[in-house]
Amino acid sequence: MNSPNKQERLEWLDAGRALGDLSPEEEAEWKPLAEVVSEEDGSDELFEFSLDAIVATLEQGLSPAVSLPEELKDQISAGAKDFHQPADREVTKGEVNARGDQAEEENENILRPSFWSRPAIGWAAAAVLALLLIVQSRPDGGGGADAPSLVEQVERDPDLLRRPFAGTGEEADPVGEVLWSDTQKQGVMLLGGLPENDPTVSQYQLWIVDPARDDVHPVDGGVFDIPASTSGPVVVPIAATLPIADPAAFVITVEQPGGVVVSKQEQVVAIAKS
């Protein structure tokens, strides 16, 4: 292989390294080739526009703008302090108990949000025995005590989109609706009639069909669970992983734990559409 060919080959392999798709054979080829080209060429040209840096910039430029969840942010901040100030003591039992108490308190707080009693949400009011807030498994799903206020918040939108859920003839007989605020770019699902799931076996996943964005691939709207203790409708914040422009339908599927990037739609349990 002459020098230009070697350089071209090295560039090709560099591109694979930057994209992270080198085969083991290519990986083995890359190292000696990089040394040879570097010795023969001695030019810095290849390094002027680092492919790694270009890829990192693409990653940044094409990624949807998201915020680090507050809870995780706090954990990282604490970790940063520990990184430079290694722990010199063990966590006391009292601290553990305090954390447990706080968690129990939070569990109490997620029950019975006040908005449910309002007549505006009437699709299953008669069936309500209890109301449980579902905390989404996905990071940007919000949840916790914020969800009831999220419902109130989206309901303030005068152009609020409401779409009732319908079943698909599967075992589940879902009732409920989607509330989506296009202005606020956020929404929430009020759901009943879905069977409980074991999160270690499968999870529910929401998909948002948005032809304005992509008429083939729906946007991942987040993963959630229906706990065993649920005897009434649940409130699930929508955690769209990409900006939504004009939602045409909301589809709930059953997927593997953690959800999937692309659904095969083998088990569609509910659809809400215009």
Binding site: Q60, V66, A80, P139, G259
Partner: peptide, 30 residues
């Protein structure tokens, strides 16, 4: 953390398939 948390979270979120995986990855990155 404030300036780049979103970027790191976005990358971790894309390369992991669950909430807990993404959290672990973000912590590893930082």
């Amino acid at each position: 953390i404030a300036s780049y948390g979103g970027l790191v979270w976005s990358i971790a979120h894309k390369y992991s398939r669950s909430h807990s995986d993404a959290e672990d990855l973000v912590q590893e990155i930082f």
